[in-house]
């Protein structure tokens, strides 16, 4: 299993999670989170386009994943994040964590997500008949890092 992957192609959450769990090194607990392309308030989202910073993206995701491995009692952790154009309902990204017990697996998954939101160089653009625009960063995403 490659612990950090950045790709344009869609992925199958179930297959990814099965592969991760199979190599999770004797863990008793596996937690995963997947983010999907959500429709917008006007209900007419056609696509989401995600731009990223090749090179820095891999570096930032590896640092975030390494930090989770150091902070929590994990046997494995992975981050998979897409870029490019995707349709409503498609998976954008997933994280998975494996640990002897569930508390570390849950906490580490939340840690990974909080850092991915505002420390990984991705930028989302929503494309809809009613308008196209870059998704603004949320103050609460930045504030969420304070708890760690």
């Amino acid at each position: 299993m490659i612990p950090v992957r950045v790709q344009e192609a869609p992925f199958a959450m179930g297959a990814e999670l099965d592969a991760f769990a199979a190599e999770a090194g004797g863990a008793g607990a596996v937690v995963s989170f997947s983010g999907l392309v959500r429709d917008i308030a006007s209900g007419d989202l056609e696509a989401m386009e995600i731009e990223h910073y090749p090179g820095m993206t891999e570096k930032a995701l590896t640092a975030i994943r390494d930090e989770a491995m150091a902070r929590f009692s994990l046997t494995a952790a992975m981050i998979l994040h897409r870029h490019g154009r995707m349709a409503p309902g498609e998976p954008i990204m997933m994280v998975a964590t494996a640990a002897p017990h569930r508390a570390d697996a849950f906490a580490a998954a939340e840690f990974l997500m909080d850092y991915l939101k505002s420390r990984a160089p991705f930028w989302k653009k929503e494309i809809a008949a009613s308008g196209t625009g870059w998704v603004a960063a949320k103050d609460e995403d930045e504030a969420a890092l304070d708890r760690w």
Binding site: G35, Y53, M56, H81, I92, M93, M113, L116, K117, S118, R119, A120, P121, F122, W123, K124, W134, V135, A136, A137, E142
Partner: peptide
Amino acid sequence: VAFFPPMTGG
């Protein structure tokens, strides 16, 4: 050197 808006990953 790179310039960009606040990141919106996840």
